[in-house]
Amino acid sequence: MSAALEFLRARTIFALILLLALFVGFVELVRPGTVTPLWVSNALMFAAPLAIMGGGQTLVMLTGGIDLSVSAVATGSAYLLATNASHGDFYALAIALSLGAIVGAVNGIGVALLRVQPLVMTLGTGLMTGGVMIVYSQQMMASQPHVPGLIQTLGAGKLAGFVPVDLFLWLIVGGVILFGLHRTGFGRLVYAVGDNAEACHLAGVRVWRVLFVDYLICSVLASITGLVLVGGTNAADLSLAESYLLPSVACVVIGGTSIFGGRGGYGGTIVGALILTVLTSLLTLLDVSEPAKQILFGAIILVLAAAYARLTE
């Protein structure tokens, strides 16, 4: 028993995968016959936006930060896309993604150059983004928002009726993140800065550049998440991604990335996002009211995060 625990402690990713299998088992147990290839395909489709947003969150958490503006950025990008779609798809897409770039750059400047605590900086920019979107939505009342077909395919489409289209986007984003973190100098610097920013500075690393790029990527990924989400729902409103803030943080924490920086990686986040998606599916099967679902979801996240903290202690 203790040998098994020791093994899991050394290779926590296996513990996570075991947990994921356990949750899938629960789903099958609660309603036998649920876990079909179609169910798996749907789970992957719903996990993709969360995992993409979690990718950005992983990057900033590895440096010891956090981004609380991701849900506002995702919502804003989705809204901008839908309201500008009448001017052409690519124009709308550019506007939507530029919101992520702008907020990310502001976050980056604040955190990297002006040394504002990430929590406060991103809380502030999140508030500002939300406020601007409210004002913007009131001026946009007249025009008819619609989601471009391309984005609808991205968010809800399935290749050959089975492989979700957003899975490909996830594979690309995930591949780039994993390659970037483990095979490039930038990735090593992200870990190094998270481990000890002061030492990096003394060693001649331009810490601000690492942080700036980090926050920029995080916001752009949040922006992309917003596009996937609005493609899935085909309706943009100002509460679209509100419920994604906690899961985006939780999938990283459950995935074993330390919020104090320097430890963890995207692999854990991927499994974390899958676990949370299966958990949502499980709670839906249990046929409980929406508020009760919310309470259970939060409570299980707490238990998982606490258990993980104990395991790696």
Binding site: V249, V253, A292, Q294, G298, L302, E313
Partner: peptide, 27 residues
Amino acid sequence: VVVALSRIPDVVATLTTGFIFGGGALL
């Protein structure tokens, strides 16, 4: 108690309890 016993950082712990309490308010 959650913050003191679970070793989860305050930000994550209260973000999560906030989610739970929000469900409670709706209940």
